[in-house]
Every structure is written in structure tokens, then in C-alpha cells.
């Protein structure tokens, strides 16, 4: 039994250990990176920084995605209640508009209001990540079989009870799939924050572009890719039934 459980967590653990290896790897990574950039003076992005940047990257994505989940799921629940149904078309349209706004443009527009640093990228990610969550939550809640709803009502469940005990559990796989898409896309998009002074894994990439150092770019890109794989495989573990 436990053997199967270990197997199920193998993929997330593998990606996580590779990620930490890159963050903490130290000098023996140098020959590998040297191959990509033979002439540069240094190829190893300062290691102490890499770990800090990784943590900051995770923080930014966690805050933005956390807010997107609260707002997105909350809004979708509100507009599927009898009192909020009027707002359903508008919320659906707004969520799809949010995805139309290019993250760079939102980022740039947020800087005059919020200043340089971490907040503009959080706003941009929040707006960009809202659509998959709202869309999937709406689909999940609307997809609950009316007969099941009727049965719950027949058992004497009130509106709130039906939401917590029937609708949300049934819709959970679809909602989680939406959150998965949103978070994995945001992990990659968060790198853009480095252009407005947020310190995250985009910083080595920008440093690499500015200094013409491919090794730096590789380190940033690999760590972002591995982080996305870690998170994605954890979600895959949480969603075993989905094909």
C-alpha cells in the first residue's frame, strides 16, 4: 500500500529535487553551464540569490493565485446563487476579457499606480489567471445534475448546505483543473515581473539578456520550468480520476 503511495508522489519529488539541486547545486554545475557559454567570465548565477529568488517567485505566484482562487471561485459561486444570477453574463464576459489583456500591458499600466516592485506583477497575474478559474467553477457548478440538486432539496438541505455538501464536492475536480491551468501559466508569466523590478526567477533571465549570458538565462528558464513541473505534478496527483 505504502509502496503505491510513494510511487504516486515520485514525479513531484523528482522534479522538486531537481529544482532544489539547481537552486543549491553549487560549483559542480559550472562545467555543464560552461558548455552553453564558453567565453563568459562567470556562468553561475550567484547561488544565494537563486534560492531567495525561487522563494520570492513562489510567494508572488501563491499570492496572485490565492487571490484569483478566492475572487474567481467566490464570484462564480455568487453569480450561480438566485440573488446574483443577474451578474452571470457580465462576470463571464469580464473573466474572458481579463485573458485578452496582455500581461505586459497590465504590468506596465499597474506601475504608475502601484510603483515598481512586486505588486504590479501580482495584479497582472491575478487578472490573467482569473479566466480559467471562473470558467471552470461556472462549468462545474452548472454541471451538477439537477436531479441531484432536487434530491438534496428533498432531504431538507438549505442553500448553504447544498453548496458545501453537494455542489462544491461534485464540482471540485473541474474547479481544481481550472486552478491547475491558472497556476502553471502564472508560474511562467511571473518572470515578466523582473522587468519592473520584482525580484524573482525572471531576474537571471533579464540579467542574461542584458549581459548576453546564455548560462544565466538557462538557469532562470530551467528553474521556472521545473517549478511548473513540480506544481503541475502535484495537481496531477490530486486529480487522479481525470483523464
Amino acid at each position: 500500500m505504502s509502496g503505491r503511495q510513494v510511487n504516486a508522489w515520485a514525479a513531484p519529488l523528482l522534479w522538486l529535487s531537481l529544482l532544489l539541486l539547481l537552486a543549491l547545486g553549487g560549483d559542480w554545475l559550472e562545467p555543464l553551464l560552461r558548455w552553453s557559454e564558453p567565453d563568459a567570465r562567470r556562468v553561475l548565477y550567484p547561488q544565494a540569490d537563486l534560492l531567495t529568488l525561487l522563494v520570492r517567485h513562489v510567494q508572488v505566484v501563491a499570492i496572485a493565485s490565492g487571490l484569483a482562487v478566492v475572487i474567481g471561485v467566490g464570484a462564480a459561486i455568487l453569480v450561480t446563487r438566485p440573488g446574483g444570477r443577474d451578474f452571470l453574463p457580465l462576470v463571464a464576459q469580464f473573466a474572458s476579457m481579463g485573458q485578452t489583456f496582455p500581461p505586459v500591458a497590465v504590468l506596465a499600466l499597474a506601475v504608475p499606480v502601484l510603483g515598481f516592485g512586486t505588486w504590479p506583477i501580482i495584479v497582472a497575474l491575478l487578472l490573467y489567471g482569473l479566466l480559467p478559474i471562473v470558467r471552470n467553477t461556472l462549468a462545474g457548478l452548472e454541471g451538477v445534475d439537477p436531479a441531484v440538486q432536487e434530491a438534496a432539496r428533498g432531504m431538507g438541505m438549505g442553500g448553504a448546505q447544498r453548496l458545501w455538501q453537494v455542489e462544491l464536492p461534485l464540482a471540485a475536480p473541474v474547479i481544481l483543473a481550472g486552478i491547475r491551468t491558472s497556476v502553471t501559466v502564472n508560474i511562467a508569466t511571473a518572470a515578466l515581473g523582473a522587468t519592473v523590478g520584482a525580484s524573482n526567477l525572471g531576474a537571471p533571465i533579464i540579467a542574461g539578456i542584458v549581459n548576453n549570458n546564455t548560462a544565466y538565462i538557462l538557469q532562470g528558464a530551467l528553474m521556472i520550468g521545473l517549478l511548473a513541473l513540480v506544481v503541475d505534478s502535484v495537481f496531477a496527483r490530486l486529480l487522479p480520476a481525470r483523464q
Binding site: S36, A188, N212, I217, L229
Partner: peptide, 14 residues
């Protein structure tokens, strides 16, 4: 698609 856009631009430079 999973490579961040910033990185893909950068990686093509060299």
C-alpha cells in the same frame, strides 16, 4: 509553451 516567454527570447539570442 511552458518555457517563459522572456527566456525563449533570450535563449534564441546566442
Amino acid at each position: 509553451q511552458t518555457i517563459p516567454s522572456l527566456a525563449l527570447f533570450g535563449l534564441l539570442l546566442a
